[in-house]
Design a protein around this nucleic acid. Structure first.
Lengths: 199, 199
DNA sequence: ACACTATCTTGACACTGTCAAGATTTTGAC
DNA sequence: GTCAAAATCTTGACAGTGTCAAGATAGTGT
């Protein structure tokens, strides 16, 4: 239950929102508790009423990011409910889109910035839920004969890993120019999925 | 050319080494210029004679990591010079091993900690070289009929991405327990490679 | 009405990256 | 070899950071 109207009125969400904005404008390096507090118009240690420490704020921002990602994934999946192959392709694409449009949020979600994720149940829960969605799509593809019938979870890790890896390497600038000049990221994703697809 | 014998005697490498050690013991959060300087036995701003700023030190540590990774990859490749399939498998495995034994170094190499990698030519060069090695192995596999004959670079991005993605998700704790209980990371890698391999 | 708790402010501390000024040592030109 | 120039290192300072303690303020439940 979020607080109703204290001195500030739902400061917690304001801080998260301020954090997201600073993150997208200045990157992780520019994200500080004091700056977040200032942007929300409160004193430098007001955040401690809502977040145990800096890590807790980052956990909250990451959790928010996962909710957004989950929503995007779910939308793509629902939009192609009758075509598992399209679910896989557009689901993957929405994953890529999210990463590219929320670069720094994506990074804190998946780059070890958060050190003890197990201490944040909301974070664990939403990321578990997200993986569950991937497994569902993979399973639908297997039932439809689009993907081979191996362990759905192993297949999910394999495919999710592939999408995730390509996006990560691209964001990191690790994909050489020779490749990026000739192929778009979408090309790479389609190619990757084709690799796993049946004939 | 590294310096020979000044006040300290090759302080630059000592700082990098100290950085690597602190990184592996305290993680990225514990890595500070001042701590590195102290560990090398010099004053708090001695590092500025060798590194423009904190980012430059991180770049140097990352570069060192890439050299180590490249060496490991190369060893695996040379050891199976007569069997491209084994080159791919053991090369991938050495990649995984490196990541798991040098977790924090791996993270700073691939997790956007380094913000303007283009400003560090040595870093760019060694990572380019590493990708080149991957392409070579993939091409050998294609010539041997182990992998399909698509664009080698696209195939390389796809396979490298897959290995990289699985490792990243595993390190991040994003692979659910239900999966990790039943399969080792090696299982996942082998499965992933089998996906791309021909029949 | 009143104790209680959540929320927020003020002030402090140690630690950080970075810069400027100066001291010291090595190098290179002569 | 001499000596100016450059590289290396120290000392001291500054602003910004996360975090804690003590107190002020405002809603809560009885």
């Amino acid at each position: 239950m979020p607080s109703k109207k204290y001195h500030h009125g739902d400061l917690k969400n304001s801080l998260i929102q301020a954090g997201v904005e600073i993150l997208s404008k200045e990157g992780l390096g520019g994200l500080s508790l004091r700056k977040v507090a200032a942007r929300a118009g409160v004193s430098h240690s007001a955040p401690y009423a809502h977040f145990k420490d800096r890590q807790a704020l980052i956990a909250a921002i990451s959790t928010e990011g996962f909710k957004k990602l989950y929503t995007a994934l779910e939308a793509a999946v629902l939009q192609h409910a009758d075509d598992p192959r399209q679910q896989l392709i557009e689901g993957a694409w929405s994953y890529v889109q999210f990463a590219m449009h929320n670069i720094d949020t994506f990074k804190i979600m998946f780059s070890g910035t958060l050190e003890k994720e197990k201490e944040y149940p909301a974070f664990v829960e939403i990321s578990r839920k997200t993986f569950g969605l991937v497994v569902d799509v993979v399973q639908a593809c297997q039932n439809a004969g689009v993907l081979r019938s191996a362990s759905p979870e192993l297949m999910s890790v394999s495919i999710w890993g592939q999408i995730h890896g390509i996006v990560s390497l691209a964001l990191e600038g690790q994909i050489s120019h020779g490749v990026l000049d000739r192929y778009s990221v979408r090309d790479m994703i389609l190619f990757a999925i084709d690799q796993s697809a049946i004939g």
